[in-house]
């Protein structure tokens, strides 16, 4: 037992065997909803962006090292794989950005009721997809 609260979660199954009750939400039986799904997306995109921050540091390090090192870094960025990775990071960034604003609004007390929460969730999904598409159209076509 690692946590004293586990002492309150003992139970017996149908055969009478002593078992540990599951913590809620028990993911195998919990129906995915927009609230929980967007919440775990926020965490996943945040962890992914932490990896992106490491790559940003390495990109800056290449620039500070030598013209040759930076040319190598830029060729990786310009490759097909590099661009696909960057599209993923763009989407993760805009999602975390938009949903982060949603979190900050919750912190000041706005948008806790379910209809508003569902609506702002849909806005976050649409806005992050839209911003990603707009940014890549500007990057690939306009510039």
């Amino acid at each position: 037992m690692q946590d004293v609260r586990e002492a309150l979660m003992q139970g017996r199954n149908s055969t009478g065997k002593l078992v540990q009750r599951p913590l809620s939400p028990h993911l195998q039986v919990y129906k995915p909803q927009i609230s929980s799904t967007l919440s775990i997306f926020h965490r996943i995109s945040g962890v992914a962006l932490a990896g992106g921050a490491v790559l940003l540091s390495l990109w800056l390090t290449a620039a500070a090292t030598s013209p040759h090192a930076f040319a190598l870094a830029q060729s990786l960025v310009d490759s097909i794989v590099g661009m696909l990775v960057l599209i993923g990071f763009t989407l993760a960034l805009f999602y975390h950005f938009c949903n982060g604003i949603r979190h900050l609004l919750w912190d000041v007390g706005y948008g806790f009721d379910l209809p508003t929460m569902h609506r702002t969730g849909a806005i976050v999904l649409a806005a992050s997809a839209g911003l990603t598409i707009v940014v890549w159209i500007i990057g690939l076509v306009v510039l």
């Binding site: 620039a63 950005f97 982060g100 940014v135 990057g139 510039l143």
Partner: peptide, 23 residues
């Protein structure tokens, strides 16, 4: 988080301005 709202938009703008840049 609040500091990163404008800073991340500035970063996206910088990436545009530095597209294809050499050292």
């Amino acid at each position: 988080a609040m500091a990163l709202l404008p800073l991340s938009l500035y970063f996206v703008l910088s990436v545009f301005l530095l597209e294809g840049a050499d050292q």
